[in-house]
Simulated scan of single mutants.
Amino acid sequence: MSESELDRLRQRISAEDALVVAFSGGVDSALLAAVAHQVLGPRALAATAVSPSLAAVERRQAKEFAHTRGIPHVEVCTDEAERPEYAANDGNRCYHCKSALFDAIEPLATALGGRIALGTNLDDLGDHRPGQLAAAQRGAIAPMVDAGLTKQAVRRVSRELGLVTADKPAAACLASRVAYGDPVTPEVLGRIERAESAVHALGFEVCRVRAHGQGTVARLEVPEDDIARATEQRTELDRVVREAGFQFCAVDLGGFRSGRMNALLPLLPVRSAS
């Protein structure tokens, strides 16, 4: 099955003249960048958006991945943090973030004579992702969706290719940790990044520090199997999270799950993305 999945992805990419892959360094965009490089060679470029919402460790790992595999790679600075509609952090924040991304990398795609490609997979289509509307409006493509790859398939093909990202934990942007309705600021994003780095250092490989109460309360999510250990280490966790800049630290007994902030969406006013 893995071979046919990889063949489908290669075939889809081969239909393009050139691609600029929006490359965050995560498992999805890493696979897309690697296969695009295999198929298109110098006509494939990986572009990483640099802003306060990208953790320093993610930026470093993206650069290392591209360098190790010989993938042409550039970093572009995006200005979403300076856009009031993004900072307001309503349910359409991702739309404005993707718009800033496309503003930054569209000139690259034009110069290369190709299109922008996103590492969206089939499982992403069922989640709340306003950025997909921005992608559709800008003509960006999602080769892995077209090739029928799920998140599980992405990891399976990544292992087949020997990518170091195959088992990398999901790592959404730092802004996804801020409660909808609370403003997204560089200060809060920095607080989250420092807190998560400190929690990782205590041995919790997978975690999320969700910011509530205008960035004063940290709601710590770890996998269910780690909740008992987090309770045992509550003193250390409370200390490092408070040292990162939060006033309070709480361990969420529901455990880690991607996209849990979306539970707040029904509480927000209904607005159009554009």
Results as ranks from 00 to 15, higher is better:
residue 123 D to E: 11
residue 132 Q to G: 12
residue 117 A to Y: 06
residue 116 I to H: 02
residue 116 I to C: 05
residue 94 C to Q: 08
residue 107 P to R: 00
residue 77 C to L: 15
residue 117 A to R: 07
residue 114 G to H: 01
residue 115 R to V: 14
residue 114 G to V: 05
residue 91 G to A: 10
residue 134 A to L: 01
residue 85 E to Q: 13
residue 99 S to R: 15
residue 107 P to T: 02
residue 134 A to W: 00
residue 128 H to Q: 08
residue 94 C to L: 06
residue 79 D to N: 14
residue 79 D to W: 12
residue 82 E to A: 15
residue 89 N to Q: 04
residue 77 C to E: 15
residue 95 Y to A: 04
residue 87 A to I: 09
residue 129 R to G: 06
residue 129 R to Y: 08
residue 84 P to L: 07
residue 97 C to F: 00
residue 107 P to V: 00
residue 107 P to D: 04
residue 77 C to V: 15
residue 129 R to C: 06
residue 103 D to T: 14
residue 93 R to V: 08
residue 92 N to M: 09
residue 99 S to I: 13
residue 88 A to G: 07
residue 96 H to Y: 15
residue 100 A to Q: 03
residue 107 P to M: 01
residue 83 R to L: 14
residue 94 C to I: 08
residue 113 G to C: 01
residue 78 T to D: 07
residue 113 G to L: 01
residue 95 Y to T: 03
residue 113 G to V: 01
residue 96 H to I: 05
residue 134 A to Q: 04
residue 124 D to H: 07
residue 101 L to R: 05
residue 89 N to G: 06
residue 120 T to I: 13
residue 97 C to E: 03
residue 80 E to Q: 12
residue 128 H to R: 09
residue 80 E to K: 06
residue 86 Y to G: 00
residue 83 R to Y: 10
residue 137 Q to A: 13
residue 105 I to M: 05
residue 128 H to N: 13
